[in-house]
Write a protein that binds this DNA or RNA. Sequence first.
DNA 1: GTCTATAGTTCGATAGAC
DNA 2: GTCTATCGAACTATAGAC
Lengths: 229, 229
Amino acid sequence: MAYRRTPKIETRLAETRDRILHSAIQLIAAHGYKATSMDAIATDAGVSTGLLYRHFSSKSEIFDEVFQRISAREIAACQAAALAGSTSRERLARVLDTFSRRAFRDRRLAWAVLIEPVDARIDARRLRFRTPYRDIFSNLLREAVAAGEIPPLAVEIVASAIVGAVVESLAGPLSTVTERDEEDRVVAALTRFCLHAVGYRDDASRGEELKPVPDVSSTICHHQRDGNL
Amino acid sequence: MAYRRTPKIETRLAETRDRILHSAIQLIAAHGYKATSMDAIATDAGVSTGLLYRHFSSKSEIFDEVFQRISAREIAACQAAALAGSTSRERLARVLDTFSRRAFRDRRLAWAVLIEPVDARIDARRLRFRTPYRDIFSNLLREAVAAGEIPPLAVEIVASAIVGAVVESLAGPLSTVTERDEEDRVVAALTRFCLHAVGYRDDASRGEELKPVPDVSSTICHHQRDGNL
DNA sequence: GTCTATAGTTCGATAGAC
DNA sequence: GTCTATCGAACTATAGAC
């Protein structure tokens, strides 16, 4: 009888694959993509280097999968933030705050995912993954216009511009050691920038301070083995 | 007698090298980076494919040089635009207009340089080449604050945000066929976005229409063999 | 899973410059 | 006569088809 994969084997394979990815995430979060060797991933995952290539065709493919997992989690967090708040303005501010705070919390991983030069494959992936972020902002903008909070605008273009502004303004701070209050400065500047950009006026009654809402997913900083990632 | 490079040969070598780069620019402007083969470049330049590798170590290196030449020209155009206008507001608007109009004029080349997935080397080059653009905006912002046109802000962060907003909002339109009035819509939305973002208020007296100023360099659309590129 | 096509790269040969 | 710019075919790797 020919060899057939039993459910038991399937499960073990999936577990190994998962362990590899977890190790990759941890190492990339600590040192970035380039500085993470296949050997290091294998060692950390407790498998041989050769086995890595049974599960993934290349280092780039591992990172691609890491990229997608991390991005999905971050997008979910931002989507959740887009629901919390009584005004569109607050929801928008919360999304910006959520995205950048989470990036700062795990800055090396954020840097690796968002800006580290990797290869064309990841570049293409990055382009595709801007869409869900754009959609979050598009929806908030349409909502805000409908509610009369801001004047009408070219939603799609403005949503793209926000995505670009966010990522680019984090690029520098993420790659340098940043103090906590420098981080606050960046988030504040970025938030003001975007709110003004879409037509909100300064509001003296509020200092744009936001109470935290519970995250949809566990914090990005602890890549627990027992997590659901 | 040993062989030595004479000035005559030096010149011819430089000319050949230049011809290769011109061909590369033309082809990339027509089809993008990926779709431009080394064979095509060689044929267009009238040399063998092998010779390409005497002048450049790889396709990536050719594109790197194309990137730098095109970027230098575009930066110069934007720097010039930053000098034309009576108010900081107008100068800022002119830079945004100049950058995006020139990108649209040669959208495929702009797309290849700004966003097409190429490789890590070009990614790194892109990161470095944001600095001069950031500097243009930083200077304009400092100027505007000093003149009391806009309230104080975190110049460096905001300058980065503008760069990101510009590039990202062009990404979509550059990669699709865009009508002239769609192009106008993008530029208008982007300009409004940035002006508002940094603290300018709408000004009913002006529709943000800008008279063209003579370019510092010849237009990007005609990659003339006789040009100074 | 093998086969094919395509595109990047390499290399030995040639011919022309010194 | 020696050296090198150039050529063009061969090699290699990868992605898509059957």
